Amino acid sequence: MSTKFPEIQGGGSLILAWQIKGKEVLVVAAGRIVNLLNADAKVTVVCPRNGLNEEVAYRVNNGQVKHVDRVFLPVDLEPEKKVAMVLTAIDDPDASTRIWKYCKQMKVPANIADVPSECDFYFGSVHRDGPLQIMVSTNGNGPRLAAAIRRQIGQMLPEGTGDSVKRVGQLRRKLRKVASGKTSRDISKRMAWMSEVCDKWSTDDFNDMDDEDMDKLVRYYESGEVPSFEEIRLGSRDHVVWEFDGTFGWM
């Protein structure tokens, strides 16, 4: 029986953007450190120094991550250390499983590399352009294929998409200053108006928008109207003075 609601497709995973900024992340051996640092996490690597690869050693030596020069011990997950997640990538399956079981006991989410049954979360293939992040996940079925799909998606996006996202963020912050109501009705109205702006304006429009354009645009908020970018630049059509410079020609 068909309905207006989407069909349930089991077997997927809940894809989230985890706000890990400023939180402690424990990495046993090496892996995913760049992703964590890009998300402003506080990273501690637990691994004998001779087990560090070139990049991790570089980041340790430059103070980008903390380093504990030994194997993992239960003390690494003591509550006062406030570890938000654990990532492991070691060649000892038994040791990995022991770490995973201890994480479960301490209720700390863990990712045990290449062992899906011992992962509370997965990493996908990510396209990054400034604030824009697009993750592709195959739920463990084909990581290499996920990377290929991610590249295809990135190539399809208009040039400057990341910059457009930045401008939209600036516009939202400016709108919240102008319309600072906090009731559910206020929030719904702001979201609806911003959605209409994003539907009506193109990537190029947002890229070309400057602070003066933003100020002009948010003035339309109370009326609920969403002008085009051309109307913002030229002003209301009732007030535009159209000049003829002879370049159009006549039939």
Score class of each variant (00 low, 15 high):
residue 7 E to K: 03
residue 7 E to S: 10
residue 10 G to P: 02
residue 12 G to T: 09
residue 15 I to S: 00
residue 15 I to K: 00
residue 18 W to D: 01
residue 19 Q to V: 06
residue 22 G to M: 01
residue 24 E to P: 00
residue 24 E to R: 06
residue 26 L to Y: 02
residue 27 V to L: 07
residue 27 V to E: 02
residue 32 R to P: 12
residue 34 V to H: 07
residue 36 L to V: 01
residue 38 N to P: 04
residue 39 A to C: 00
residue 41 A to E: 14
residue 44 T to W: 13
residue 46 V to N: 03
residue 52 L to W: 07
residue 55 E to G: 13
residue 55 E to K: 09
residue 58 Y to K: 14
residue 59 R to K: 10
residue 62 N to M: 13
residue 67 H to G: 15
residue 71 V to A: 07
residue 72 F to Y: 03
residue 73 L to M: 10
residue 78 E to N: 09
residue 78 E to G: 05
residue 78 E to A: 12
residue 79 P to H: 08
residue 79 P to D: 02
residue 81 K to Y: 14
residue 84 A to V: 04
residue 87 L to Q: 07
residue 89 A to T: 05
residue 90 I to Y: 11
residue 90 I to S: 12
residue 92 D to H: 06
residue 93 P to D: 06
residue 94 D to F: 08
residue 95 A to T: 04
residue 99 I to E: 08
residue 102 Y to A: 06
residue 104 K to T: 11
residue 105 Q to R: 10
residue 106 M to E: 10
residue 107 K to M: 03
residue 107 K to R: 03
residue 108 V to K: 01
residue 108 V to L: 03
residue 110 A to T: 09
residue 114 D to T: 00
residue 115 V to D: 05
residue 116 P to R: 01
residue 116 P to S: 08
residue 117 S to T: 06
residue 123 F to M: 11
residue 124 G to N: 03
residue 126 V to D: 01
residue 126 V to H: 09
residue 129 D to A: 11
residue 132 L to D: 14
residue 133 Q to A: 11
residue 135 M to G: 09
residue 138 T to N: 06
residue 143 P to T: 12
residue 146 A to G: 15
residue 146 A to Y: 04
residue 151 R to F: 00
residue 160 G to R: 13
residue 163 D to Y: 11
residue 164 S to A: 14
residue 166 K to G: 01
residue 168 V to M: 13
residue 172 R to W: 12
residue 173 R to W: 01
residue 180 S to A: 15
residue 180 S to F: 15
residue 182 K to R: 10
residue 182 K to D: 00
residue 182 K to Y: 07
residue 188 S to Q: 06
residue 189 K to S: 10
residue 192 A to W: 00
residue 192 A to N: 03
residue 193 W to G: 11
residue 193 W to C: 12
residue 195 S to W: 12
residue 196 E to Q: 14
residue 200 K to S: 02
residue 205 D to I: 06
residue 209 M to V: 08
residue 210 D to G: 05
residue 211 D to L: 06
residue 211 D to S: 05
residue 214 M to H: 02
residue 218 V to Q: 02
residue 218 V to M: 10
residue 219 R to I: 02
residue 221 Y to T: 00
residue 223 S to I: 05
residue 224 G to W: 15
residue 225 E to Y: 13
residue 226 V to C: 13
residue 227 P to S: 13
residue 228 S to Q: 11
residue 229 F to Q: 11
residue 230 E to Q: 12
residue 230 E to L: 12
residue 233 R to I: 03
residue 234 L to N: 15
residue 234 L to R: 14
residue 234 L to D: 13
residue 236 S to R: 05
residue 239 H to T: 04
residue 240 V to S: 04
residue 242 W to D: 15
residue 242 W to Q: 15
residue 245 D to C: 11
residue 246 G to M: 07
residue 247 T to P: 07
residue 248 F to G: 05
residue 249 G to S: 02
residue 251 M to F: 15
